[in-house]
């Protein structure tokens, strides 16, 4: 807590770099650590180069971007709702993305063209966001959250229906596997497809800090300070649709990162919503990358799904945070 801001930035970068290096080296084929430094030499092992550049690098990039999107949107939504339990799925966007992706698998489109899954996922995310916006018209934040809950419910029902009516057991298995979330077997095509949305979403969400700070005084005071709640709501919804929509479309449903990342950084940076945003982004990226490394390292016959691991590890971590909060809170 007494670490200076500059040291914190250095520390965060060091942790991220270390995680990236580990992520590039571990997996089904463990590579010696000097592989990373001989990558561009002509005598480098071509198989190792291929594994790193075509398999692990896109996977690592996606883990960082998806984690960043979840961490930042979690922080923004907690700021918007002034509720520490808010998480990225709140606006119905992630369940919309999940439904889109599940339809791609259900119809068999994903077998013909692998990118159909993230593409329909994106479409689902935007459809859900549009629905939330229409249902949640008005000025208050509460209306938007309730609309998000309704849309979430509908999208979830649609997903369950697709699973229920799966044409064959194989499709049902594929759908339930996809829903658990994973970054395995993602290629540069996946990165190119979703990265623009993820980055745009991060930028849109990153601009909400000042308004979120004012909103900690309540809606009336924020409005009296010149904050336009209507455009703030729109900005948050758009940013979440872009970032979380794209994240879910490419990686499936990944719980707890968005809820956890802001809580994790608050002891260091304080509770001002604006100051939580970027640290939560970095924390989200680091947590998700670490979790993805974990899925590759844990010795199970089948690779552990990312979404399963984040919830498994996230829950006790979250409970310990709660206990600490209970001790320090008045």
């Amino acid at each position: 807590m007494s670490v200076s801001p500059r040291k914190r930035v250095v520390l965060a970068i060091a942790v991220l770099l270390a995680l990236v290096m580990v992520s590039l080296l571990v997996g089904r084929v463990a590579l010696p650590s000097n592989t990373l430094f001989t990558l561009w030499r002509s005598d480098a092992d071509p198989l190792a180069v291929l594994i790193i550049t075509e398999l692990r690098l896109p996977r690592t990039v996606l883990a960082l971007l998806v984690g960043a999107a979840l961490g930042l949107s979690g922080a923004v939504l907690q700021g918007l709702t002034r509720n520490p339990l808010a998480e990225p799925g709140l606006l119905g966007v992630s369940s919309g993305a999940a439904l889109g992706a599940v339809i791609a698998i259900h119809t068999g489109l994903s077998l013909v063209w692998p990118l159909a899954t993230p593409l329909l996922g994106l479409a689902g995310a935007f459809g859900a966001a549009l629905l939330t916006l229409t249902l949640g018209r008005g000025e208050g934040v509460l209306v938007l959250i309730l609309a998000g809950a309704a849309v979430s419910g509908v999208m979830f029902a649609g997903t369950a229906l697709a699973l229920n009516l799966a044409p064959n057991p194989y499709a049902a298995y594929e759908i339930s596997m996809w829903l658990m979330g994973s970054l395995a077997d993602r290629s540069w095509d996946h990165v190119l497809l979703v990265a623009p949305f993820l980055v745009a979403g991060l930028l849109v969400l990153g601009g909400t800090g000042r308004a979120l700070d004012a909103l900690s005084l309540g809606e009336q005071q924020a409005t009296s300070l010149g904050i336009n709640l209507r455009s703030l709501r729109l900005q948050v919804l758009l940013g979440t649709a872009l970032a979380v929509g794209a994240a879910t479309a490419v990686a499936g449903a990944i719980g707890f990162i968005g809820l956890l990342a802001p809580h994790w950084v608050r002891p260091w940076v304080g509770h001002e919503p604006r100051r939580v945003l970027w640290p939560a982004t970095v924390a989200g990226a680091a947590l998700l990358l670490a979790a993805d490394i974990g899925t590759r390292l844990l010795p199970f016959a089948q690779e552990l799904k990312l979404g399963v691991l984040t919830v498994l590890v996230g829950t006790p971590f979250f409970v310990s945070l709660l206990l600490r909060l209970r001790r320090s809170a008045p």
């Binding site: 002034r82 900690s216 005084l217 009336q220 009296s224 509770h271 919503p273």
Partner: peptide, 15 residues
């Protein structure tokens, strides 16, 4: 102009 509503409060533990 500054405006303060009834029972104004802060939702986060800001200094």
């Amino acid at each position: 102009r500054a405006y303060l509503p009834q029972n104004p409060r802060c939702d986060w533990p800001l200094p």
